[in-house]
């Protein structure tokens, strides 16, 4: 397939994905905005005013980056896992598999769709956050690259989940039992400096903690001790997930008989 034709195929998948989540915006875009607004009101405004500061900044400012990150990663993941699994379930994925579209384009297309939704929700949540507090971006390049990489990382993770899933239950297991606990324990609502040494060490094994930390540093310029490591780690693990996803497509695992 010529490179121009590959671009057309990629644009087709991305357009289809954006159309899909836009068509059902009441299920995809609205709920995270409402949920995050409630978090801002309850944790940021009502409880936050009593908490005072966290790591040297107001509690509202502390939770904003984490909540944006939480919205981006869960929506990136959800979009790819539900869209790709639905395509597998309805067998409409065969439309792509019989076509000359290369596997890498299929993967990039679905990930771009997941990232589009994740970043779109992230932008909406940021807009809501601006109602409650001012955000002065410390480093645009770092902020953008961390959020984009995180979105890609969770899109790829959603893709792998969708490939292995056999039922609709299988696509909710990881978000419910893995993603949500890791996010809530990932420094979104509290600083791990509040924890005893042992739990602080355990928390540092949670990758979401480092993603949130790096994003918070990019946005506010605080807590940036491990940003370089977080960025490098995210790059490496995104690369590993990308290679694994491509391998699954090349071998046709759970997709071709």
């Amino acid at each position: 397939m010529e490179s121009k034709a590959q671009w057309v195929a990629l644009a087709t998948i991305v357009r289809k994905e954006i159309k899909r989540f836009s068509r059902i915006w009441v299920q995809t875009l609205l709920p995270p905005v409402i949920t995050m607004s409630l978090y801002f009101v309850i944790f940021g405004k009502l409880i936050g005013s009593r908490v005072g500061t966290m790591d040297g900044i107001s509690y509202m400012q502390f939770v904003v980056p984490g909540l944006i990150m939480m919205a981006v990663l869960t929506n990136s993941y959800s979009n790819v896992v539900s869209s790709f699994f639905s395509a597998k379930f309805q067998r409409s994925i065969e439309e792509l598999l019989v076509s000359p579209t290369p596997n890498v384009i299929i993967l990039l297309g679905y990930c771009a769709g997941g990232m589009a939704r994740g970043l779109c929700v992230g932008a909406l949540v940021t807009a809501v956050a601006l109602v409650f507090t001012d955000i002065q971006v410390h480093s645009w390049p770092l902020t953008i690259s961390i959020i984009v990489l995180t979105s890609l990382f969770f899109s790829l993770a959603g893709f792998i989940n969708a490939v292995f899933a056999n039922t609709f239950d299988d696509i909710s297991i990881v978000p419910t039992f893995v993603l949500t606990p890791l996010t809530y324990l990932g420094g979104v609502f509290y600083s791990i400096n509040l924890l005893p040494d042992f739990w602080r060490f355990v928390s540092q094994l949670n990758p979401i903690l480092h993603m949130v930390g790096a994003f918070r540093y990019g946005l506010l310029g605080t807590g940036g001790e491990h940003v370089a490591w977080a960025f490098a780690g995210l790059m490496v693990f995104t690369g590993i997930l990308f290679a694994a996803s491509l391998y699954l497509l090349q071998t046709g695992k759970r997709l071709r008989a």
């Binding site: 195929a9 087709t12 357009r15 639905s86 076509s99």
Partner: peptide, 28 residues
Amino acid sequence: IVPQEFNFSQFEKVRDIVLQQAGYYGLP
């Protein structure tokens, strides 16, 4: 290929399904 079982997204519009397939084959 015209398979035995229906294998398109039931939620998409007829024209969109055909247009998308053209896109997967690289048609502008």
